[in-house]
């Protein structure tokens, strides 16, 4: 298959890649200022398996609520709209692109661990730099690499070869994708995220997390996930498909204004939260 064929296949991915209906509906509702918590609760309850998963996560040590949360409406009241939206969309997408479909080269368990770690770390960095609504950053981190899992699903053989080559040659996977496919996961991710009607901030993160300076309007948002990715790779929390660490963009770093001690504190928080977040993956 040559590059032209692959590009045609890429366009088809836009048609093939699906977001679970409930996750899609919840995404729409949470962007609608007229939607109530009850509307969201009803939407989630349409899917019993997802309802059960949301309650399991809501009751996990990651959220640390001392009493049992037994209904979705209860969960929305206690954890808030934003956290519930994050749980539903993350759990829905992780379930749709299951770990059982791992190939020899692209390990989906490690991929989702890396994504989860990036979600946690993005939230911690966002809070550290004083970003309003820092919980938003959790979903940015979890979904920033969504293009990889979509490619692994819809151009599986080609993508396995790219991942294998990246590992053998010590390349960043984004560079291997661009070199051998002619496009990369940021392009594919943006394509599907747009189709799934994801919020504008998330689209930017997916598009620019490897090159945040191109995100003229919201450099800070892309920089948070750019840095989170590097910190997760440094502590080896999961794997996005390669074994390398990208170079920190200096403009992003300056914007974050972090010193060594603050980074050490972030590392400690990352590991602590990561250990309590496994309910997202099981």
């Amino acid at each position: 298959m040559d590059r032209k064929d692959l590009k045609e296949k890429l366009l088809k991915i836009g048609d093939l890649a699906t977001l679970p209906v409930v996750a899609y509906n919840v995404m729409q509702l949470t962007q609608n200022p007229k939607a109530s918590a009850m509307d969201v609760g009803k939407a989630i309850s349409q899917d019993p398996a997802l309802t059960s998963k949301v309650l399991k996560i809501a009751n996990s040590s990651f959220y640390g609520f001392p009493q049992k949360i037994s209904t979705i409406n209860n969960a929305i009241v206690i954890l808030g709209f934003s956290n519930i939206r994050n749980i539903v969309i993350s759990a829905g997408i992780i379930d749709a692109y299951k770990v059982e479909k791992s190939s020899a080269h692209f390990d989906r368990t490690e991929f989702w661990k890396h994504s989860l770690a990036c979600g946690i770390t993005s939230k911690i960095i966002a809070s550290t730099v004083g970003l309003k609504n820092s919980e938003e950053a959790f979903i940015w981190g979890i979904l920033h690499d969504i293009g990889k899992i979509v490619m692994d699903t819809y151009i599986h053989e080609e993508y396995s070869q790219v991942v294998q080559t990246a590992k053998e040659k010590g390349m960043l996977i984004v560079d291997a994708e661009q070199t051998y496919l002619g496009f990369n996961h940021t392009t594919v991710g943006t394509l599907v995220a747009r189709k799934w009607n994801m919020p504008p901030a998330l689209l930017k993160v997916i598009r620019y997390h490897h090159n945040p300076v191109l995100d003229y309007n919201s450099l800070r948002i892309s920089s948070i996930v750019h840095l989170a990715d590097i910190l997760c790779r440094t502590l080896d929390l999961g794997s996005g498909g390669d074994n390398e660490i990208p170079i920190v963009n200096e403009k992003s770093w300056d914007l974050m204004n972090l010193d060594k001690q603050t980074v050490k504190t972030i590392f400690a928080e990352m590991e602590k939260e990561y250990e309590s977040a496994t309910a997202f993956l099981h």
């Binding site: 590097i230 910190l231 440094t234 502590l235 170079i247 920190v248 200096e250 770093w253 972090l258 010193d259 060594k260 001690q261 980074v263 050490k264 590392f267 400690a268």
Partner: peptide, 13 residues
């Protein structure tokens, strides 16, 4: 410079 800071922070941590 940022990579030096990150590396030192990771090693110390």
């Amino acid at each position: 410079e940022p990579m030096k800071i990150l590396l030192n922070a990771a090693k110390e941590y």
